[in-house]
Nucleic acid binder design. Sequence first.
DNA 1: CTTTCGATGATCT
DNA 2: GATCATCGAAAGG
Length: 185
Amino acid sequence: MIAGIDFLAPSADVARRLIGVVLLVDGVGGRIVETEAYDREDPASHSHAGPSVRNASMFGPPGHAYVYRSYGIHWCLNFVCREAGHGAGVLIRALEPLEGVAVMRSRRGVDDERLLCAGPGRVGQALGITREHDGLRLDAPPFELIAPPRRVPVVRGPRIGISKAVDVPWRFGLRGSRFVSRPFR
DNA sequence: CTTTCGATGATCT
DNA sequence: GATCATCGAAAGG
């Protein structure tokens, strides 16, 4: 259990429960307001075709990070779920900035707080995520996860930016948050 | 508000 | 050679 979440659970359960959790990397970050679940049996998942060099962390132990390079430009952060070897994870898609806002502004080169962490590539840039973070455990520095004090209202819908399994409703968000990458319907 | 397109590099066929 | 769990700028309504 990390921040009250059992990472052995199916990725959709973990994705839903991560909404409202505060994520910090070296003390910088905010509240998770948008996630997406991926699984081995899921054609849209990096793990679908089995283990490879890139997705090795996804087949590692749960409660660790899986970091990949997106479109040759961005670093995207995932949390590994299920038992080691299964190949499931949750993509962190957006945060509500809380800690180290000035640092995130400077890393992003953007003023608008709303655009600091609204999207997986932006989250990676704002938190300073790189290949170095791939495979690291989430319950030790530089990572810190803090459970929300109360239950939080969650909305769900289809995932973004994929071409397979486009109707699977495995995108989760904090209801009413203005910090999501795109509105929920 | 919407759509389109280029950047950029690892991965896979 | 094609595809990509993206972003930002540009152009059009």
